[in-house]
Design a protein around this nucleic acid. Structure first.
Length: 93
DNA sequence: CCAGTGACCAAGG
DNA sequence: TCCTTGGCCACTG
């Protein structure tokens, strides 16, 4: 698989994350979570819901800006981190 | 080929 | 809960 195809697969999963929910870097890029971060940091597409991608423990990589967007969608928090038990999109149906 | 780097992860203390 | 550690993997120089 080429670089672009892997990126597309990652972007596709991000796009498939519904408002009010989140997925982890590991969810969108199994086995290589850091790549998801690299892709996001490189991609400037406004339509991409980058804020719905959070760390496995529910903490945010982008701070207050990301927090505000998630709050606006009604994503549940426990203190400063997303309540993953409720907000995480199940990958295994 | 090797070393450094990241919007990471899981396990331990 | 907060830190540290060791481990990932792709990419870059």
């Amino acid at each position: 698989m080429g670089r672009v195809e892997r990126e597309e697969r990652i972007l596709e999963r991000i796009r498939a994350t519904p408002p009010g929910f989140v997925r982890t870097y590991g969810d969108v890029s199994p086995g290589a979570p850091r790549v998801a971060g690299a892709v996001l940091s490189a991609c400037h597409d406004e339509s991409l819901p980058w804020h719905r991608i959070v760390r496995a423990d529910g903490t945010l990589a982008k701070g207050g800006r990301q927090r505000a967007l998630l709050d606006a969608e009604g994503v549940p928090f426990r203190g400063s981190r997303v309540d993953m038990r409720i907000a995480r999109v199940p990958d295994q149906p």
